[in-house]
């Protein structure tokens, strides 16, 4: 089956990103396809490269990056939600005249159309949020 994934909450305060990560790993393990993982609302904060969680805790952004690299996952951060919350890639940094970018490796910034497309293309769109 082809899954689309939506993550609507940020890391650590909510468990939605953890649950999505476990779901994606399990789905891939069963041979399913992950069409796209779309980060919306505070979920965009999962893409920050600047988090430094304690060493005995999980590092969600790093786990997402590594999983994406291993399986060629498409991690998409909503541009409108990201701009509000200070999530920028190098291009957006330049475009808005900021002096830093913070998007983790393996994530890309794009529009809400990517979410709708995931709904159209995937057999199931699964939301992880509150």
């Amino acid at each position: 089956m082809k899954f689309g994934i939506v993550i609507n909450e940020g890391p650590y305060t909510h468990q939605s990103s953890d649950s999505a990560l476990q779901f994606v790993k399990a789905a891939l393990g069963k041979g399913h396809e992950i069409f796209r993982i779309f980060f919306y609302h505070d979920g965009v904060n999962n893409g920050t490269d600047l988090g430094v969680p304690p060493q005995d805790d999980r590092n969600l952004a790093k786990e997402w990056s590594e999983l994406a690299e291993k399986h060629g996952l498409d991690l998409v951060v909503c541009i409108a939600a990201a701009q509000r919350r200070g999530m920028l890639d190098a291009d957006e940094m330049k475009r808005h005249g900021k002096n830093a970018s913070n998007l983790s490796k393996g994530f890309r910034i794009s529009g809400l159309g990517q979410l709708i497309e995931a709904g159209i293309q995937a057999d199931r769109l699964v939301t992880f949020g509150d």
Binding site: Y40, A80, A81, G111, G113, L115, I116, G119
Partner: peptide, 30 residues
Amino acid sequence: FCYMNRKAPYGTIYALESLEVVLIAAAFDQ
């Protein structure tokens, strides 16, 4: 496509950002 709106308009951003999704979605002829 069904967009469920279950939260008050203010207090959290969900209502506003849901509306932003819906306005984009309208362009997809679904």
